[in-house]
Design a protein around this nucleic acid. Sequence first.
DNA 1: GAAGATTGATAACTCAATCTTA
DNA 2: TAAGATTGAGTTATCAATCTTC
Lengths: 174, 174
Amino acid sequence: MADEVRWLDHTEMEAWRGLLEVTTRLLSRLDDDLGPHGLSLAEYEVLVQLSDAPDDRLRMTELAERSLVSRSGLTRRVDGLERRGLVRRETCSSDRRGANAVLTDAGRLLLAEVAPVHVDGVRRHLFDHLRPDQVQALADALGSVDIPGQSSCSMDDISAEGHAKAATASGQPA
Amino acid sequence: MADEVRWLDHTEMEAWRGLLEVTTRLLSRLDDDLGPHGLSLAEYEVLVQLSDAPDDRLRMTELAERSLVSRSGLTRRVDGLERRGLVRRETCSSDRRGANAVLTDAGRLLLAEVAPVHVDGVRRHLFDHLRPDQVQALADALGSVDIPGQSSCSMDDISAEGHAKAATASGQPA
DNA sequence: GAAGATTGATAACTCAATCTTA
DNA sequence: TAAGATTGAGTTATCAATCTTC
């Protein structure tokens, strides 16, 4: 297993390295753009996912997956948003173990204020540098890569398979 | 500025969302792959950058930029690597303020052990899902997007411009 | 006992302030 | 005074363990 390594060729290196650099810097900039409005990109992400969901609500686990964060991570993120009145929790009626995160009016309002700023940032930092065919190619290539959500499985939760959620999410509030 | 928002169209949404999801999950997986070898992806990144540099050494600030991390973040990362003997610090001879991070023999050895694992992971999780033309398109598109390194400038360090570093980095150790 | 969610402990990062040398 | 690097304080993420309900 030591000598038959297929190293990355130049193009692969550019692609992988580009993915790393562009994403890292882009996220950093988008975070900066939202800062003045009192929201982190991670928090914005939660608000968007909720506004995209039917009835502006989502179970915590589902919201965690869509927000690309761990369950415990989401708990704390929602804590912060709830403290500021942008989201509230409701215990699930059908299953008393579960909790729903619900977008509040204040949350919807802030999202409406911030979404244009965010989209503008995505344009300025990303799409303004790309031709339409490049955007299409990017969407196509990235759409072909499906990496399952949770990372390692503890050997005994093989049963917990069967996810494979598709990318949803829009950019506009309502 | 409120009503003339150009929302993202479907393709743009796919591209942006794909960038976010693929990168997030990919990084998480690659981190998992390296875990058993006692190295985080972030630490691996530092070792790679050093091994790519002439004489296996790099100034801290330069290494921070290439590793996509803040200066203070790098200081701590190198602290950890130095504690384990994978990297050592040398004060710069020409400018006594500066420090060079230098790859040690142990670091070079570990890198040689781990690099095949990493490259294999990048293949399995990313490139195995892509056709050659998609890889090419990805490299092309991401190469067109140049987002400057540091995020915000504190109003008075306008002088600190003039960076615009190109992507270097390879995947193989030597 | 397993699933949904949270909490405790810990790790890693950032900004702002500091120390040292130019 | 400015630049290079580090340190202090605070934030936010994760894993593993826990609590509650199924």
